[in-house]
Design a protein around this nucleic acid. Structure first.
Length: 470
RNA sequence: GCUCCCUUCGUCUAGUGGCCUAGGACAUCGCCCUCUCACGGCGAGAACAGGGGUUCGAAACCCCUAGGGAGCGCCA
């Protein structure tokens, strides 16, 4: 028997930029199929025409691409189960709506929004779960015809069978069981004729041959509804896995106020894609190794059995750790590009490699690189109050001696410092700190031994001289 | 309100009844390296939500409580 190809999918609705939670779901899904050498499908769920925007359709694709989560089937790539945008699949859905109508598994509902809202309010206030009453479930053909003649536009509701247990094995949470009586008849087609999530999402997964659906925990109670639809239609059911949500430091749903950002913002801020994937792949999932992995290694070692069930808190510290890991491994050309024009405009071409290797361990973001580029290559060097204090404390005499010592080893900091030490008698912190501050304006930073050759003799002299005047 | 889910160091997590004196990573602190800062190396402190059971034995199994979350939409 041929082993079924693993097919996973990511099905965003283009109503905004993808955030960490979304991105992690996409990542897990992509890693799953990548590990099995299966296929990853991207499907755009744009049935909500009010909120869907073309700009976000593009943004989602760009962001996934940036994260190295390429899809084998979907927009642009194509595939045999297209189209991959739900707004273009109306004909497909109509066919299946017809099938359900034939089988009397659905019925038109003429209840107005106001009516439904009111009913819900009453149910909630009397301690009942807000569930559709089934008012239109028993309308006769004549009643239906009459309402349609009046110009009323019905929604289509799915008849949920009574007294049934709906069971499935969740990839993450194990055995799940729901009572059908706890599910009200739900809408699968809106009054305007567009298809509702429960329906198109489930039908498309089946039609596209998706075998594994990894999605947020918020969908857990949607699953029995979708299983019901798939059963009614006689379509294949994928396996579902519901991933816990990402929350903020206080355990409440992740939001801007927790420092949560869209993938786009993370990228604009200078986070490396590998840093983001290494971090996200370990939020609610664990690897035996704590070592940095590229996307293929992340995939090779990914395992749904290692997905956690409890919500994970977003922690900027940990993301930053992976940023440093990624930065330490990035190629010279990648880092150069990452540093951006602020650095490109300042750093001489023949200094590129040295400049990068010198500051690499000391920076996290392009803005830091830009700062060091300005420090090293632009004059005059401006000292802040703290730096002035250190310079003043060392004294003019010290810098005069330093200036004398430059000759002969302007590119050899070790020898230079030794000479200054011998002349001035200063050592340790008293020796190094004033030199560092005079030369860079900073009390800390990359190795002076590497920085000094970048500065060059002329600049070193000028900066030491600057410390001789008030 | 009802239904469902979750709960191990500050954080991410390991843990499938004895390998647990609860392991690792991030963060924090300390030491070493360096005549400075960082990088790096070594080390320290730090957790089974609470209460009852079951068992020779419980972080693990059961029940209750507490706290957190989700769903109950003509959103997805």
């Amino acid at each position: 028997m041929k082993k079924q190809l693993v097919k996973s999918r990511f099905a965003p609705s283009p109503t905004g930029f993808i955030h960490m939670g979304n991105a992690r779901t996409a990542l897990f899904s992509a890693l799953l199929s990548r590990r099995e050498r299966g296929a990853f499908v991207l499907r755009i769920e744009d049935t909500d025409q009010e909120r869907s925007r073309e700009e976000f359709v593009h943004a989602v694709q760009e962001d996934l691409w940036w994260l190295s989560l390429q899809w084998q089937e979907g927009p642009v790539t194509g595939g045999e189960h297209g189209p991959y945008r739900q707004s273009e699949r109306a004909a497909v859905y109509d066919q299946y709506f017809d099938q359900l109508v034939q089988q009397d598994k659905v019925y038109p509902c003429f209840c107005s929004t106001q009516e439904l809202n009111l009913a819900r309010k009453i149910q909630v206030s009397s301690g009942q779960p807000p569930r559709y009453s089934g008012k239109c479930a028993r309308l006769s053909k004549a009643e239906i015809a009459e309402k349609i003649d009046q110009g009323l536009l019905p929604t289509l509701r799915f008849r949920v069978p009574a007294q049934q247990m709906i069971e499935f094995e969740d990839l993450v949470r194990g055995k799940q069981a729901f009572k059908s009586d706890e599910i009200g008849d739900f809408i699968i087609r809106r009054a305007d004729g567009t298809t509702a999530f429960f329906f198109c999402n489930a039908v498309d997964d089946a039609l596209m041959g998706v075998t594994h659906v990894l999605r947020g925990e918020d969908h857990l109670t949607n699953t029995p509804r979708q299983l019901l639809i798939l059963d009614a239609l006689g379509l294949d059911k994928p396996q579902y896995g519901h991933i816990s949500l990402i929350v903020g430091h206080d355990g409440s749903p992740l939001s801007k106020r927790h420092g949560s950002r869209s993938i786009r913002e993370l990228r604009e801020q200078g986070y490396l894609a590998d840093a983001v994937t290494n971090y996200l792949a370990r939020l609610g999932h664990h690897y035996e190794s704590d070592a940095y992995m590229d996307i293929d290694q992340l995939a090779a070692n990914f395992d749904v059995a290692r997905l956690g069930r409890s919500p994970a808190r977003y922690d900027a510290h940990q993301l930053l750790h992976w940023q440093h890991q990624a930065l330490a491994r990035a190629s010279l050309s990648d880092i150069w590009e990452w540093m951006g024009s602020a650095v490109h405009d300042i750093v001489p071409e023949d200094h590129r490699a040295d400049f990068i290797e010198t500051i690499r361990p000391n920076i996290s973001f392009p803005e830091h690189a830009a700062r060091w580029a300005r420090i090293v290559y632009t004059d005059p060097l401006l000292l802040d109050d703290h730096a002035r204090e250190i310079v003043a404390a060392a004294g003019k005499h010290f810098f005069a001696q330093a200036l004398q010592s430059v000759a002969g080893h302007a590119s050899d900091f070790k020898a230079f410092a030794k000479a200054v030490g011998q002349l001035s008698g200063a050592k340790g912190k008293d020796l190094f700190l004033p030199l560092r501050v005079a030369l860079t304006g900073e009390a800390g930073g990359p190795e002076m031994a590497r920085l000094m050759p970048l500065l060059g003799e002329e600049r070193v002299r000028a900066r030491l001289e600057a410390c001789l005047v008030d």
